[in-house]
């Protein structure tokens, strides 16, 4: 049992454990026949949650009060504008991605400008920004469903050796963020700011610069997610970002990151994203009605969070 201790003390282990259990429960119910299809679907949809979850994680690491509520609107705007820009032309795929990233940059900068210049708390600033961004999306979309370029649609729904391309893209982004968080100076800085902004300032950390970069990164990740999601689902829709508001925050919390900031991890985001999708598919497989499904989802999430927060209490 002692050999397991270092693994059990990791805050992300609970989300992975929960994901594995849910997967087993679902696969067993269908007699194992659906295991392959289920894992492909799970990987794909989890990857979208991972992309927004990573950005939200960085923001939440900045400490109490820091959260980005403009994530869904950014997803919608970037999906809409990028597809509109590409006009189903396969040659414009990369410039289209660039358009999405620029939208992310712009939203991130605008968010931090509101927070800093007008001294609005982040939760209000990003919420108001999300209305502005969503209105832009509505105005430019006008109810038309624009199709993605053929090659891009094929790529986003395709697989390499059975692994969905979207999951690989999510993995690549996760690795970048993991490196930033665990290996780079930037990661130390956001963790320091999350623990005590005053102490961080007096230790020579450029607090505003670091927070600015973090909000921009979060918006860029949401924009990339929007670009891929719109291409994957055959076109941008105005409500495509809606479910990612709570999802982005839930995966951070379930993944074992400290809600009060200062302490985050990337593996937990994956475990939590897989788990969040698997819970819904499990309850669907069991054939529960919508009401019971939502209730059970809530209860299961609470159970995982309680389990995940225990090692933290023990350490104190």
């Amino acid at each position: 049992m002692n050999a397991l201790k270092p693994v059990l003390s990791k805050p992300w282990i609970w989300s992975w454990l929960a994901a594995a259990l849910t997967f087993a429960a679902t696969a067993l119910f269908t007699g194992g026949s659906s295991a392959f299809g289920l894992s492909q679907a799970t990987l794909t949809f989890a990857a979208f949650s991972v992309m927004v979850g990573l950005g939200q994680m960085l923001v939440i690491t900045l400490g109490p009060g820091n959260v980005d509520l403009s994530v869904p609107a950014t997803i919608t705007l970037s999906g809409t504008l990028a597809l509109k820009f590409m006009e189903t032309e396969s040659s414009l795929i990369l410039p289209g991605l660039l358009v999405a990233i620029v939208i992310g940059l712009a939203v991130g900068m605008a968010n931090y400008a509101l927070i800093k210049l007008l001294r609005i708390p982040p939760i209000i600033a990003t919420l108001s920004m999300s209305f502005l961004v969503q209105s832009l999306a509505i105005w430019s979309n006008r109810g038309l469903r624009i199709k993605p370029p053929e090659a891009l649609a094929t790529f986003t729904t395709g697989t390499v050796f059975g692994v969905p391309n979207i999951a690989l893209a999510g993995l690549l982004l996760s690795f970048v963020i993991w490196w930033l968080l665990e290996r780079s100076i930037y990661g130390r800085w956001i963790s320091a700011i999350g623990q005590s902004p005053f102490a961080a300032r007096m230790a020579g950390i450029p607090v505003d610069g670091t927070r600015f970069v973090t909000y921009v990164l979060c918006a860029v990740l949401a924009a990339i997610c929007g670009y891929l999601l719109a291409s994957f689902s055959g076109g941008a829709a105005l409500n495509m970002g809606t479910e990612y508001l709570l999802m982005s925050i839930a995966v951070v919390v379930i993944g074992g990151c400290a809600v009060a900031g200062g302490n985050s991890n990337v593996p937990g985001i994956w475990g939590a994203s897989l788990f969040m999708f698997l819970v819904v598919s499990m309850l669907n497989t069991y054939g529960f009605g919508a009401g019971i499904r939502l209730m059970l989802t809530g209860l299961i999430i609470i159970a995982v969070i309680v389990a995940a927060s225990r090692p933290l209490n023990g350490r104190k």
Binding site: S191, S196, M202, G204, P206, D208, G209
Partner: peptide, 24 residues
């Protein structure tokens, strides 16, 4: 600087009120 990363070649601070502006 509060905005731009800079090596602390110029100035450093030792806190007295540790929990306020010293330790993480």
């Amino acid at each position: 600087s509060n905005w731009w990363p800079k090596r602390p070649e110029d100035i450093a601070f030792v806190a007295g009120d540790r929990s306020l502006n010293g330790t993480f």
